[in-house]
Amino acid sequence: MAIETIDQPTATDPAPWQPRLVAILCNWCSYAGADLAGSSRIHYPASVRIVRVPCSGRIDPLYVLRAFERGADAVLVAGCHIGDCHYAEGNYYARRRLTMLNELLHFAGIPAERFHFRWVSAAEGPEFAKLINDITQKVTPLGPYKPETRDKFVLLDDLIAQLNTLDEATPPCEHVAAAEATEAAGS
């Protein structure tokens, strides 16, 4: 399936909205886990976008913030289980940073369903698929993370509607009425 069809459902085949999930996966475990899910032909939502990084310790918290800023509806970060890091201790660093990021996102009011931080090993293909399914299920009812663009148009429509009804609904201000009266008298 071409990627475009996910984002832009055609009129004839309107696919239900699916959250765009960005999954940042470590090369050695989680990416291999995702690969296993694929080669085992396990079904999971195709709206997940995978970013492969050398190690979860390489993940700058800015990656996650950037993903949200660019319109991701949910972000998953996954790395090797503690003790299994290919670079021995990368995921220990990741654990601290992402735990703190999780706290910060929670404090900033970003729903907990939208950010996930899990360990997925290379053998956990089914678990990976289940994780993606779970996240998609949790995020779908929440809708897009950035509904602002949509709201903006709603607001604009409201404003136009208000302006249109202004003439009939609101009596003109006193000075406007006075000016109109003078004008009428003059002509």
């Binding site: 503690i82 201790e89 220990y92 660093y93 654990r95 601290r96 940073r97 992402l98 735990t99 703190m100 999780n102 706290e103 929670h106 907990a112 996930h116 931080f117 899990r118 360990w119």
Partner: peptide, 30 residues
Amino acid sequence: AYAHVSGLDAEKPPPLATFDSQDRDAGEGH
């Protein structure tokens, strides 16, 4: 989480530039 207060000890590295194997694990809380 890490019993660290900034600016109290010049010998301690910043908490997010180090780790402890006993740290709180991923996915806990919220």
